[in-house]
Amino acid sequence: MQVSITVNGKSFTHDVEARDLLVFYLRDTLRLTGTHVGCDTSSCGACTVHLDGQAVKSCTVLTCQADGRSVTTIEGMANGDNLHPLQEGFREEHGLQCGFCTPGMIMVAADLLERNPNPSEHEIREALEGNYCRCTGYHNIIRAIQYAASHAVAA
């Protein structure tokens, strides 16, 4: 079946199988490999992207469900050389080590800050409940998101 999807502002049209997962469409077809597959079971959140502005786990979304909709991935977060405040925050606060979970963390945090620009620490922790980090620990990730909230500029 044919799908037309806008990804990071660009329009794409491809033939896909009905069973194809959005994460493999992004990674294999569009070669946007910043979105990762960690668990394949919707547990780890490394595959988190935005679908019409809402954070979703792309390993649990069929590509055809994104037909006619807009997807944003980690590759679409920076504006040229200007990093998104969350990307700055993760770098400034050492919110990453191996980097594998980081794109998913940034995407879920961007969704949170969109809905709630000044979240409490508790609200940040709750927003991250679907995302695993296995190296850095969550403290610095929370500091990174707090950094972004306090440095947010009109992106």
Binding site: R27, D28, T33, G34, T73, M77, L83, T102
Partner: peptide, 21 residues
Amino acid sequence: VKRVEDKRFITGQGRYTDDIQ
């Protein structure tokens, strides 16, 4: 000291094994 690898990781430009085609 800022880590040199962070920029590629926070922008989705890391190169893990499964990213290689």
